[in-house]
Amino acid sequence: MMTAEHPFDRAIALHSETGAERTGHTSPDYWNAISPFGGTTAATMLQAMLEHPDRLGEPISLTVNFAGAIKPGNFRVQARPARTGRSTQHWLAQLHQGDDPAPAITATAVFALRRDTWSDTESAMPSHAGPEGLERYAPPMRLPFLERYDIRYVDSHPFAGGASSQTQCWIADVPPRPLDAAGIVAHCDAYIPRIFVRRGRPTPIATVTLTVNFHADAASLAERPCTLAFAQARANAFRGGFHDQEGRLWAEDGRLLATTHQMVWFKE
């Protein structure tokens, strides 16, 4: 479900130039410290595939690689199906800016026609009180994209430091927006970096690669719209200037929406 006037939908909007290329513009509403919020960039890559006339089915997995810095201004996205089968379709996409022949962003995705089969969900949403009564997260420095999210942590302060990098929080768009595939992608990048949690302070970081696996389809999201999600994330290892991050995202009613994985560069 798309809301045309929502800042997020404006941020990921694309315009057709040719059959294989679409253009967009960075959004000041979703700006990070020195570049656009990676969640909206990843969502833009997915949006180029979702709007492609040759699309088959819905996304089941998306991987976005952040190869170079994105500057304020226009960009071009090229997306094409690399191979289409009877029930799955594999995608390739690139984002370019200016005259640079090298892409700033590369992405792959798998789309599929989902079938009615035996189903079960092993990953259960932790039992926690709702967001009412919890304070909205106030970051140590103001960043435009964080103004677009209402994040409320249910456990210790995210900068507490300690032996565990796990955090759990409620998250919603500001203003509220029903979640769809693009919105889920952005939510999966809204977690505070794990290195911040472990070290108890901010440090320069950059996501290198982000993968989102989708567990909810468009029909279920339309049947039971949700504007509030519960997010859990943790790291497994910090080594050689990189750390991983794995996360899970549930709807307020306990439906598993997505699982996500990242590798993040950090500087001490």
Rank of each mutant, 00 (worst) to 15 (best):
S165W: 10
V174E: 07
G68L: 15
R198D: 12
Q97Y: 01
D155M: 03
A93T: 07
L134T: 06
T108H: 11
V185C: 13
F75D: 14
A138C: 07
R136A: 11
A190Y: 00
S123A: 14
H187P: 08
R142M: 04
D150R: 01
T121S: 06
R142Y: 00
R199P: 02
Q89M: 07
R83K: 15
S164A: 09
D116G: 09
R142D: 09
A104P: 02
R114W: 04
D99F: 10
C169H: 06
E132I: 02
R83E: 11
P175D: 08
V110T: 13
N74P: 11
L92Y: 15
P101Y: 09
V110N: 05
L95Y: 00
L134P: 08
F111K: 09
R177V: 02
A181D: 15
A82D: 08
L146F: 01
L95V: 12
Y153G: 01
G68K: 15
A124N: 03
F111W: 13
R198F: 05
R198G: 12
P193K: 07
R136I: 06
V174H: 01
A190R: 00
I195A: 11
A107R: 08
Q97F: 00
D180C: 12
G98M: 10
A182E: 12
I171L: 10
E135L: 06
D180H: 03
T108M: 10
V77L: 12
G161I: 05
N74T: 15
Q89H: 12
R177L: 09
S123E: 06
A124Y: 02
P103D: 03
L179T: 08
G130I: 02
R136W: 02
R199D: 13
G68Y: 14
R177C: 04
E122R: 14
R80G: 13
W91S: 05
M141P: 00
K71N: 11
F196P: 00
P72F: 15
S156Y: 05
P175F: 01
A124D: 06
P158N: 03
P175K: 10
P140S: 02
R148F: 01
I184V: 11
T167F: 00
A181R: 14
F159E: 05
D173L: 12
H157F: 01
V154M: 03
I184R: 14
F159S: 03
